[in-house]
Amino acid sequence: MVLLGTPNPESSRLVALTLTEGDPTWAGPLAGVRLELPVFHITEESIKAQVPPEVYEAQVGLAEAVLDTRAIRETLEDVRARAGAGAKEETA
């Protein structure tokens, strides 16, 4: 799986799409390449819950405090939903 630390929904979408459906800008070597890797953001609750809280706070806390974590989560849920069975099953 892929774990992202991207700072906004747009960059999250760009990287996530590149690693699932292929580079949406058709600029790089992954244009048209369907890797279908499941992609999650470090601030998504299902990921965060698995990290020791004090470590999460030290490594991610400050960024999480200012990022639009809800929009990032919704963006990645959308990408995963589009990505097909391989990635989708894992999101449950």
Partner: peptide, 17 residues
Amino acid sequence: IAIGERDGVPGPALARC
């Protein structure tokens, strides 16, 4: 695969988590 960003959560911080 941990893909961080300088002005978000950097790679080493993701990897540690």
